Computed example of a mutant assay.
Amino acid sequence: MTTETLGLRERKRLETRSQLESAAVRLALEVGLENATVDAICAAVPVSPRTFFNYFESKEDAILGVRDVPLDDASVAAIRAEHDGESLLSSVIALLMQALGPAIADTELHEARITLIKQHPNLLGRQIAQMTRMGEQLIAAASTLVAADPMFAGRETGEQQAIAEIILPLCGGAVRVAVKEWVAAGGDRHPDELRKRAVELARKAIEPLR
């Protein structure tokens, strides 16, 4: 199997995913979320439902463009480097923003997705489902960030993991609120502004508890 063949296959996968996302969004706008069934989305591409579920767990995930982003050592190291000198909250929130990926990215479907989320706020719940699916990856990645933070670097590994498991839900809640605000404002914020707002919210939640 050649590198060229692998490249063609990956391009085909990306093309199919993009077509499914576009069809899901278009149908949800045209016929309503309830009527935009997986079968209807597949017929519009066209692909089989089996192919659809190779890419997405649900039609809601296709509408949002939700996908699990691998959080390998290289990606965690990149987050550490990019946010070196910033707070642990900032690094963990950057991690969560990377995990959310296209669901909050500025894509060509951005405005249509914002319209649908405003009509159906429950769509944002798919972010929580995504974070649950990625739970072990997120804990491992957050533990690495905790271990690299000067405040926690000398702690036992088990304690660092416990801190990661405590801080993740806090940061996840901050991201969720920031995303809700972002949608209410029309979704015109840059993702970096969204991250900064989430950090601000997390800090506001922590400071009175000290």
Rank of each mutant, 00 (worst) to 15 (best):
T3G: 15
T3I: 14
L6W: 02
R9K: 09
R13G: 02
L14R: 15
S18Q: 12
Q19I: 00
A28E: 06
L29Q: 12
A36Y: 11
V38Q: 03
D39I: 09
D39S: 14
I41C: 07
C42L: 05
C42H: 03
P46C: 02
V47K: 08
P49C: 12
R50A: 14
F52R: 06
N54W: 09
Y55F: 15
S58R: 05
S58P: 04
K59H: 09
D61H: 10
G65L: 05
R67I: 12
V69L: 03
D73R: 06
A78Q: 12
I79L: 03
A81I: 00
A81S: 03
D84T: 04
D84I: 01
G85R: 14
E86L: 12
L89H: 09
I93M: 12
L95I: 07
L96M: 07
L96S: 02
A99D: 10
L100T: 10
P102G: 05
H110T: 08
H110M: 09
E111Q: 15
E111M: 07
T115W: 00
I117E: 04
P121D: 09
L124G: 11
L124M: 14
L124K: 00
Q127P: 01
I128A: 14
Q130T: 05
Q130K: 14
M131P: 03
T132P: 01
T132C: 08
L138D: 04
I139C: 06
A142F: 00
A142C: 03
T144V: 02
L145C: 03
A147M: 01
A148S: 02
M151R: 11
A153K: 14
Q160T: 05
Q161S: 11
A162G: 07
E165A: 15
I166M: 13
L168S: 05
P169D: 07
P169I: 06
C171N: 07
G172Q: 10
G172S: 12
G173L: 05
R176Y: 15
V177F: 11
K180P: 01
K180S: 13
E181I: 13
E181G: 11
V183T: 01
A185W: 07
A185I: 04
A185T: 06
G187R: 05
D188M: 11
R189K: 13
D192I: 13
L194R: 11
L194A: 05
R197C: 06
R197H: 13
E200T: 06
R203N: 13
R203F: 08
K204C: 06
I206Q: 08
P208E: 09
L209D: 05
L209V: 15
